[in-house]
């Protein structure tokens, strides 16, 4: 079985390399990683192209059959948007919190964390209570006489965005917040006394220093939404299928080769998006240098 021998080989090479270096203390960590991440990834990659011999049939099926490309595209676009929106909303929230007194910060972070302790399923159902035909918003609008028939808010792509952002926003806030607490508080002050207006102090000092946190929160939110399927299935419409659904379905049907191919595409797309976003962010937020010394 090619996948198996390859896994052993890569593990072996890794171990030999490590033993030669003096960093053998990290061996357990590396073994763990090799076992639980690298090996499965390699196996997925292999089983997507080996199916009773080398084959491109799984990728061909992806490209030509059904609606896989479309689902893939939608999953990707939606995840990017959710990532961006969560950062755009979460960053100012974190900024607000980090500039409160320590006691207020603890209290506000607790408020942010509470929803994380509620199951996604329950939070998703809660949206029905709010956005449903007989939900709070529709009832209020009808009572106010603004509409006479309930609006369709549930089971739409909009509902998917609202629900996913609500679920993922705390994570974005936490990632931004923890990066912001790392920033030396005298730095924005220093910037101001050196002549920076509040906006410039933010733009040239606070923002670049918290950029890593903003990127991290984008990456986490983006990756999580790439794998989301419960929420879109429960609050979305017929066009809101996510690639994770398709993968799960194919695993159930024992189409492991095809599921592997999809998972691999998902992984590659995720990496590409992360790299591109990082480059863009560094380009637009990074320091405008005066140059190098001669």
């Amino acid at each position: 079985m090619p996948a198996h021998s390859f896994r052993l080989l890569s593990l072996g090479i890794g171990i030999v390399k490590l033993l030669r270096s003096s960093d053998w203390l990290i061996v357990p960590g590396v073994l763990l990683l090799a076992f639980f991440f690298v090996a499965p990834t390699v196996e997925i990659a292999l089983s997507s192209i080996f199916d009773e011999g080398l084959t491109g049939k799984h990728f061909e099926r992806f490209a030509t059959k059904g609606a896989y490309v479309e689902v893939f595209r939608r999953t990707l676009v939606r995840s990017v948007w959710i990532g961006i929106l969560c950062v755009l909303i979460g960053y100012p929230i974190a900024y607000f919190i980090v500039h409160r007194s320590l006691r207020t910060q603890v209290f506000l972070m607790l408020l942010i964390l509470v929803p994380l302790w509620t199951s996604i399923l329950i939070r998703t159902y809660a949206w029905m209570v709010v956005l449903g035909r007989e939900g709070i918003v529709n009832n209020a609008l009808i009572w106010l006489g603004l509409i006479d028939k309930p609006l369709r808010m549930m089971f739409t792509t909009g509902a998917v965005y609202v629900a996913m952002i609500q679920i993922l926003l705390p994570i974005a806030v936490i990632a931004c917040y923890s990066a912001m607490t790392e920033i030396d508080r005298t730095l924005p002050r220093a910037a101001k006394v050196l002549g920076a207006s509040p906006w410039k102090a933010f733009r040239h000092v606070f923002l670049p220093l918290s950029l890593e946190g903003a990127l991290t929160s984008f990456v986490i939110v983006f990756m999580l939404s790439m794998g989301f399927f419960i929420t879109p299935a429960l609050v979305g419409g017929r066009k809101d299928a996510m690639l994770a659904n398709v993968i799960a379905h194919n695993v159930e049907q024992l189409n492991w080769g095809f599921a592997s191919a999809l998972a691999l595409l998902l992984l590659v797309a995720t990496i590409i998006v992360i790299v591109v976003v990082r480059l863009l962010a560094n380009r637009f937020v990074g320091v405008r240098s005066v140059g190098m010394a001669p």
Partner: peptide
């Protein structure tokens, strides 16, 4: 027939 019809179904739904 699931595999083929599921593919058609997914495409049809979108």
């Amino acid at each position: 027939n699931t595999e083929a019809l599921q593919e058609r179904w997914d495409a049809w739904l979108l």
